[in-house]
Design a binder for these strands. Structure first.
Lengths: 145, 145
DNA sequence: TGCTGTAATGAGACCCGATATCAATATTCG
DNA sequence: CGAATATTGATATCGGGTCTCATTACAGCA
């Protein structure tokens, strides 16, 4: 654990202790984490980083394209280190578990459709929500209010 | 056991003037609208419906599957009347013009991906944003402020 | 190496979307 | 018609996320 990543200097501004901590916590986090969760995680590690800084750095990383941001069903933002370039997410609306999926077909479709309508500088958002296997087999529709 | 919830048709409850107004406003709105926009729209029509009621009814309709709820990039919730015909939108990020597009290929892709991961009760959201032909030929960088 | 300009930090105020509260009101049904 | 109760709505409240601004720390320069 002590093996703090050397934190390579990125194009995200000056190198600071806080950025290194956030970066490491993000790396350790398996799956998606919200800014608040990340903040808690850091605190429980004994480190101290302001919540605002967590939000700021996550935003910076998102802008730099180094992490991926998505919205949980309730609108809260979640982040994850994105391994590859462009991909989409399949999110369980019950437990929030997310799976990264790729869709070359979708990319082509989007590009084709946009082009056909004369649109440029195109970006698209694809979110698939459902109920994952675990949440389906379990008492899925126990209570619904 | 216990009295199996009749559940029959837990429609949208009693019929009230407010629900009719919201429903009508939702029908007039072409594309997506947020709860607040809908509330404003209703007020400017001379009708009076509480904001809480707008939120409540939109939630009810969403639960009943009569409208679709999606999240705007900033996390705000937007709603759209869910017509039997499923389609998506191509939106110009400059002038806001929207074009309805269909994508059978995307539907199949989404279904296949979800199935491959064991997800059920799947729904998906696809939004394509770009700069339309008019806004491309015109001023280049008129980013919003 | 020490100094200095400036980006970065952080505690808390603040913003705003969404929900909860609860008395008053409207709707449905016997 | 009148009772039972679902619904409404003004407002309080909640919570995620951003902004402010004095303080701190990084990095380049002499």
């Amino acid at each position: 654990m002590a093996g703090a990543t050397p934190t390579a200097t990125r194009s995200t501004g000056r190198s600071t202790r806080q950025k290194a901590v956030i970066d490491a916590a993000l790396a350790e986090a398996d799956g998606f984490v919200t800014a608040q969760e990340l903040h808690e995680r850091i605190k429980s590690q004994g480190d101290r980083v302001g919540l605002a800084t967590v939000y700021r750095f996550l935003q910076t990383l998102t802008d730099a394209g180094e992490i991926d941001q998505l919205r949980l069903p309730d609108g809260e933002a979640a982040y994850r280190r994105c391994s590859r370039g462009h991909h989409h997410h399949l999110v369980c609306r019950v437990c929030g578990r997310a799976v990264e999926v790729e869709g070359p077909a979708v990319e082509r479709w989007a590009a084709r459709v946009a082009d056909a309508h004369g649109f440029t500088e195109v970006r698209h958002t694809v979110e698939i929500q459902g109920r994952c296997a675990d949440c389906s087999s379990a008492a899925g529709r126990a209570e619904r209010m």
